[in-house]
Simulated assay, not measured.
Amino acid sequence: MALVPYEEGAGWGARQLHSPAATYRFASRTIRLRQDWRRLGVAAVVWDAAVVLCAYLEMGSTDLRDRSVIELGAGTGLLGIVATLL
């Protein structure tokens, strides 16, 4: 696990983590997720790594049909949702 110094209100990237919702478009679907950083912490936000991996999976180089996929540590579950849709 990596620890990153964090100050609320500082920096550009932190603002998106405090947004109450995040909306993405993957697998020809719009996915809207609720976020709650203050109450639930780091597990309750969509992290950039999950978005990047979703985009990679959507490119189609990895066939997910008839496969079991487990997602660990990617925030709100965006990656698991997209893997299911693909």
Rank of each mutant, 00 (worst) to 15 (best):
E58F: 00
W47P: 12
A55C: 04
G75R: 00
W47E: 13
L57E: 06
G75C: 04
T23E: 14
C54L: 06
L72G: 00
A49P: 02
R32V: 12
D36R: 07
R34S: 15
S61K: 07
R39C: 03
C54P: 13
T76G: 08
A55V: 02
G60Q: 06
V42R: 03
A55E: 13
V69F: 08
W37N: 10
V45H: 02
D36Q: 10
E71K: 01
T23W: 02
G77W: 00
D66V: 06
E58T: 09
I31R: 12
R34D: 13
T62P: 00
D36Y: 08
L64R: 07
S68I: 05
Y24G: 03
D48N: 13
I70Q: 04
V45T: 11
T76N: 12
V51S: 03
C54R: 05
V52N: 06
W37C: 12
Y24F: 15
T23P: 05
G77S: 00
L64K: 07
R32Q: 10
L72C: 08
F26G: 10
G41M: 07
E58M: 09
Y56E: 11
A43W: 08
D63S: 12
G77A: 00
V52R: 07
L57S: 10
L40I: 02
L40E: 15
D48A: 14
R38F: 09
Y56S: 12
A43L: 02
R38H: 11
R67N: 01
A50P: 08
L64D: 07
V69M: 08
W47I: 14
V52W: 03
G73D: 02
A43G: 09
Y56I: 06
A44R: 05
D66I: 05
R67V: 01
V69A: 06
T76S: 02
A49W: 02
S68K: 04
R25V: 15
C54M: 10
A27P: 10
C54T: 11
V46N: 11
G41H: 07
L40A: 10
Y24I: 10
V46E: 06
C54S: 09
D48M: 05
D66E: 13
I70C: 04
R29K: 13
W37M: 15
S28D: 15
Q35C: 09
Y24A: 10
A43V: 05
T62W: 00
A44Y: 02
G75T: 00
E58L: 05
R65H: 09
A27T: 10
E71A: 08
R32H: 01
V42C: 07
L33F: 08
T23V: 08
G41L: 04
R38L: 14
W37I: 07
A44P: 10
A44C: 11
L72M: 03
M59R: 15
L72N: 00
L33Q: 11
L33P: 11
L64C: 08
A55W: 06
S68F: 05
L64H: 11
F26L: 14
A27F: 04
C54Y: 08
R32P: 01
G75V: 04
I70Y: 01
L57N: 03
V42S: 13
V42N: 14
G77P: 01
S28L: 06
D36T: 11
R39K: 15
G60H: 07
R38D: 14
R34L: 13
D66Q: 13
Y24D: 02
L64N: 12
F26H: 11
M59E: 15
A74P: 01
R67H: 04
D36S: 14
V69L: 02
C54H: 07
F26C: 09
